[in-house]
Nucleic acid binder design. Structure first.
Length: 272
DNA sequence: ATTGAGCGC
C-alpha cells in the first residue's frame, strides 16, 4: 500500500490527444474524453508543487521548458531528462513550482498543449519509490490479428494502462506480435506478468511472453542519435556512417563530445 | 531482441 487511495475519478480531457501524428497511436487510448485520474491527483494536491511533463518534443531544451512554465508563476527548478553523455532527451521532464497553486494552474492550462509534433502531458509527479518502477512490459507471441482493443482486454484488467505500443512491420503495416504495455504501478505490471506470461490467448496459438521491458536498449539509441547529431554537425551532414562498428569506434575515441553535449542541467530562478 | 519516451537528482 502506498498510502494513496486507488479510487478513480474522471476528469474532462481533450478527446484527440495523440503523442504524435496518426501513425503513432500508442498514447491515444489513454486519453479518451474522460481520462481517469487517481485520487491523489485530484484531492491531495494541496502542497504539491512538483510536476512531471510527458511527451516533450525531442529538441525541447530546459530553457524552453522553463520559459513555457514560468508564464504560470515562479519556478523553483526545471529539468529535462536526458542521456548523460549525449544529451539525447528522453522526452520527459520535471517542473517544480514555488507555490502549489501555480502547479495546479499549470496542469489546468498547459496539460494537452500542442508543441511542435507533441501534445504535452502535465501532471503531478509522484514521490519516487519502488512501486512506480518496472512498469513497462515487453510482450511477444501475440496473435497476428491483434488489435489495440484486444490488448486492452488482455492487460487492462490487471491495472491502469498508461501507454501502449503495438509494433508493426514497417513495410506491410501488419502487427509483428510484439507490444509494449506500460502500467501505472509496479504491482499491476507484475500481476499482468503472473497472469499472462506463458498463457495462450483465446485467438492465438503460441504462449505469450510477458516480461519487464529492457531499459538499456534506449541507452544505445541515445548514444547513436547523439553521436549522429554531433557528427552531422561537425561534418556538415555530408558523410554518412556505415554501421554500428563505426559508431562505437567514434564514440569511444577521444573527442570533445562532452563539450558538445554537456548533459543534464537544472535551471533555477537565479539563472535568469 | 525491444518502442518512444510515465517519475530524476
Amino acid at each position: 500500500m502506498d498510502g494513496y487511495p486507488r479510487t478513480l475519478h474522471y476528469v474532462k480531457q481533450d478527446a484527440s490527444w495523440e503523442g504524435e501524428g496518426p501513425s503513432h497511436s500508442s498514447a491515444r487510448n489513454s486519453y479518451l474524453n474522460h481520462r481517469p485520474m487517481a485520487d491523489y491527483q485530484v484531492q491531495k494536491n494541496e502542497g504539491k508543487t512538483n510536476l512531471i511533463i510527458n511527451y516533450l518534443p525531442q529538441n525541447m531544451t530546459e530553457k524552453e521548458l522553463y520559459s513555457m512554465f514560468v508564464t504560470i508563476g515562479p519556478v523553483e527548478s526545471c529539468r529535462v531528462m536526458k542521456d548523460f553523455k549525449t544529451g539525447y532527451s528522453y522526452g520527459f521532464g520535471f517542473v517544480n513550482y514555488s507555490k502549489a497553486e501555480d502547479a495546479s494552474r499549470a496542469i489546468g492550462t498547459l496539460n494537452g498543449l500542442q508543441v511542435q509534433n507533441k501534445r504535452l502531458k502535465v501532471s503531478f509527479a509522484r514521490p519516487s519509490g519502488e512501486e512506480i518502477k518496472e512498469t513497462n512490459l515487453y510482450v511477444t507471441n501475440l496473435p497476428r490479428n491483434i488489435t489495440e482493443q484486444y490488448l486492452d482486454m488482455l492487460f487492462g484488467k490487471y491495472g491502469q494502462i498508461v501507454q501502449k505500443n503495438l509494433l508493426k512491420d514497417k513495410l506491410t503495416g501488419m502487427p509483428r506480435g510484439v507490444a509494449f504495455v506500460r502500467f501505472d504501478r509496479r504491482d499491476e505490471a507484475q500481476q499482468a506478468i503472473n497472469s499472462l506470461n506463458g498463457v495462450i490467448p483465446e485467438n492465438g496459438t503460441e504462449p505469450l511472453v510477458v516480461k519487464i521491458a529492457e531499459e538499456h536498449g534506449k541507452q544505445k539509441a541515445a548514444y547513436y542519435a547523439g553521436w549522429q547529431a554531433g557528427y552531422n554537425q561537425s561534418r556538415g551532414s555530408q558523410q554518412q556512417w556505415h554501421g554500428e562498428g563505426d559508431v562505437l569506434a567514434a564514440v569511444q575515441s577521444p573527442s570533445t563530445r562532452y563539450k558538445e553535449f554537456p548533459g543534464e542541467l537544472v535551471w533555477h530562478m537565479e539563472n535568469f
